[in-house]
Simulated scan of single mutants.
Amino acid sequence: MNNKAAFILVLLLTIGLSSCKNKNSLPDPLEAGWQGNAICEVLEDNKKLRVLKCTFKPGVGHEKHYHNLHVGYTLVGGKFRITDDTGMREVNVPTGYTFSKDSITSHEVLNIGKTTSVYLIMEYK
């Protein structure tokens, strides 16, 4: 293989690999906030997993964002308005509730309850 052929092969591989990355134009849950304020903090970040703690005071939400595959746990529940690809709904999320998604998803949430709600989000890398 000559230099020109090797260059073209490397270029094609680079283009191919870059197209495999997540092309979501939305922020992830750590980048997303509410009215310019951070909602989530990193508790753990390693090669396989990122753990976030997200806190929502009454009237505070989380701008539209995406999640990779994840598992969540409600430390302190509350009442939320959730908007996603299925529409808008209001839900009461109980303390101790566990949830998971096995695909990339996106949504926006707003705490419409009277208490501060706290979640752990564990995202697989």
Rank of each mutant, 00 (worst) to 15 (best):
H67D: 02
H70K: 03
E41M: 09
G72I: 05
H65F: 03
G77S: 05
H67F: 03
G59V: 11
K53H: 10
K79D: 11
G59A: 09
L52N: 06
Y66I: 09
H62Y: 02
H70Y: 08
L43E: 14
V76E: 12
V60A: 08
T74I: 13
G72H: 07
C40G: 08
E41K: 14
A38S: 15
F56V: 04
L75T: 05
V42I: 15
K47A: 15
H67E: 00
V60K: 07
K64L: 06
C54M: 02
H70D: 06
G61A: 01
K53M: 11
K57N: 14
C54A: 04
C54H: 05
G33M: 05
V60Y: 02
F56W: 08
H65R: 04
G36M: 07
G33H: 06
L69C: 03
G72C: 06
T74A: 11
Q35L: 12
Y66P: 00
R50W: 06
K48E: 13
G59I: 12
V60I: 15
G36E: 07
K47G: 10
F56M: 03
E44G: 07
G72K: 07
T55G: 06
E44H: 14
Y73Q: 03
K79C: 07
N37W: 04
V60D: 01
I39C: 00
H62Q: 09
K47H: 13
F56P: 04
G77C: 01
K47P: 01
P58T: 10
V51P: 00
L52R: 03
G61L: 02
W34V: 00
G78C: 10
E44I: 14
L52V: 04
V76H: 04
L49Q: 13
F56N: 00
L43S: 11
D45S: 15
R50F: 01
E41V: 13
L75S: 02
R50Q: 15
N68F: 11
N46R: 11
G33T: 09
V51E: 08
